[in-house]
């Protein structure tokens, strides 16, 4: 999602879903803001879809870029708060579910606490919410966020990029609410996903191309 001075454009990447998202699935929204729909012919993962959206959105002269999960957990009402943070001079505004009005299950709270410590060890960033997909970037920050992790490890990869550029980027955390529902918990990653993230990061470190 990206906003320019004049308005809003929503970038949707269909990551090989079956059936595919068709423009007819998005009827009401098309009236007031532009939607750019693209599709991965096969499923690559959330990180790969975000990277595709990032590259498409960067073609346009947007001022602010916002990423959101599409499982219904994020509340669009929090969007102005993230945009305000960027307008106030931040380069990166990261959502913080623990400061917002969120019903985080105890097991997820534990996993996120461990993730917070892990990310501190990996990146040196001590963030309140380690894996929140609701984030805003200005153009300078978004241009630097090239993601190579195709799956869920992209969240840590983003923090690694931010940590690398911490002298050049102003980072703030903004309260956002996350609503966990049966649907979102079923659709989102399981707590065991942390192991997959660790595996992907290790393999990328060992076998991936140097950045």
């Amino acid at each position: 999602m990206a906003s320019a001075a004049g308005g809003l454009t929503v970038y949707i990447v269909d990551d090989g879903s079956v059936p595919a998202i068709s423009p007819e699935d998005l009827p009401a929204a098309t009236a007031e803001f532009w939607i750019v729909l693209s599709r991965h012919p096969i499923n690559l993962g959330q990180g790969a879809a975000l990277e595709t959206a990032r590259r498409i959105a960067l073609q346009n002269q947007h001022d602010v870029f916002v990423t959101m999960d599409s499982d219904g957990q994020h509340d669009a009402a929090d969007l102005p708060r993230l945009l305000d943070a960027i307008d106030s001079g931040a380069d990166v505004a990261l959502g913080n579910r623990f400061a917002g009005n969120s019903n985080v299950p105890a097991s997820r709270r534990l996993i996120l606490s461990l993730a917070r410590c892990f990310e501190f060890a990996v990146t040196g960033l001590w963030l309140a919410d380690a894996h929140n997909g609701f984030r805003a970037f200005n153009r300078k920050a978004m241009a630097a966020m090239e993601m190579r992790q195709a799956r869920m490890a992209h969240a840590t990869e983003i923090k690694q990029i931010i940590a690398r550029l911490r002298d050049q980027l102003k980072i703030v955390e903004v309260p956002v609410s996350i609503t966990y529902s049966a649907h979102s918990l079923a659709k989102g990653q399981s707590s065991l996903g942390a192991i997959n993230i660790l595996r992907d990061m290790t393999f990328r470190y060992l076998f991936g191309r140097d950045t």
């Binding site: 423009p23 750019v36 599709r39």
Partner: peptide
């Protein structure tokens, strides 16, 4: 995906 994007 980039080559087939549609603006609604």
């Amino acid at each position: 995906a980039i080559g087939s994007q549609q603006v609604l």
